[in-house]
């Protein structure tokens, strides 16, 4: 009994210590961001690594998610004779929800885990320590550009995901199932609102961009510098990012759409 209480207390303390370290790191990273505008090349390089290299998985997943939405939406709508609205269903599902959320989950798996592993290994091989001794702040030189790159890449990836998803839905709905071409686009244009739908989707992906990049660089920087420690940190990045994205998605959706 006493032992389990003790364990609970210790785990609780550890949790709050990590939370504190995480926030301190975020503050340091944010303080390092202004300096990056003078050396934007560092950020561009990271945008290539986390953003451009994630494009394949984002585009392929987007097409398939859109195709599934087209198929499922059509099967439901056709019972009510409302298959003309397929464009709206596909676009709204993607822009409001699936675009930002699935992109964030894929991003955590593709880029977040890579960031954590890279930073963790740099720590394990004393590269971060060496930078410190060369009077180069690793937070500013290594962590901040990666964080900013994740933050910038996420909304673009989400937008690309939604766009190719809508094309995937078009291919299935209009191309294979015979929904009217004009109705697919015009209803979509009519019902999808710039402010309510698109902007809110972008806000979501910006929030996810911050959270996933933050978790990834924190876990990497906080990893125990051994191969086991880095592997555990990488796992934690993916698990914590996924949970944070799904939890935050509910909160954001409630704030945005829950009148």
């Amino acid at each position: 009994m006493l032992d389990s209480l003790q364990l609970l207390g210790r785990k609780g303390l550890e949790f709050f210590q990590r939370l504190g370290r995480g926030h301190l790191l975020l503050l340091q990273v944010l303080a390092g961001l202004p300096g990056l505008f003078l050396r934007f090349g560092l950020v561009i390089k990271q945008i290539y690594a986390v953003g451009v290299l994630s494009l394949v998985i984002i585009v392929v997943s987007g097409v398939f998610v859109g195709m599934v939405l087209g198929l499922q939406g059509y099967n439901t709508l056709v019972d009510f004779g409302a298959e003309e609205s397929l464009g709206v269903v596909v676009a709204l599902s993607l822009v409001r929800e699936l675009g930002p959320v699935v992109t964030a989950l894929l991003f955590a798996g593709r880029a977040g885990s890579a960031l954590t592993a890279e930073i963790g290994l740099m720590k394990a091989t004393e590269q971060l320590s060496a930078m410190e001794m060369m009077a180069v702040d690793p937070v500013r030189r290594v962590l901040a550009p990666r964080f900013l790159a994740g933050f910038i890449s996420m909304p673009f990836l989400a937008a690309i995901f939604s766009a190719v998803g809508i094309l995937g839905g078009y291919f299935v709905g209009v191309g294979l199932l015979g929904v009217d071409d004009g109705a697919y686009w015009s209803q979509m244009q009519d019902k999808v609102d710039m402010y309510d739908d698109i902007n809110n989707g972008i806000i979501k992906s910006l929030v996810f961009g911050v959270v996933v990049s933050w978790i990834a660089i924190f876990e990497g920087n906080d990893a125990i510098p051994t191969s086991e420690g880095v592997s555990r940190a990488t796992t934690r990045t993916v698990v914590h990012s996924a949970l944070a994205v799904l939890g935050l998605d509910f909160i954001l959706t409630a704030l945005m759409f829950g009148e």
């Binding site: 740099m122 091989t125 004393e126 590269q127 320590s129 060496a130 930078m131 410190e132 001794m133 060369m134 009077a135 702040d137």
Partner: peptide, 19 residues
């Protein structure tokens, strides 16, 4: 401290080159 470190060189055990 950073100004002082610019005047020190350290050779780490495994080199610690940026990979």
């Amino acid at each position: 401290l950073y100004r002082l470190r610019k005047r020190m060189g350290v050779l780490f055990q495994n080199g610690a080159l940026l990979t």
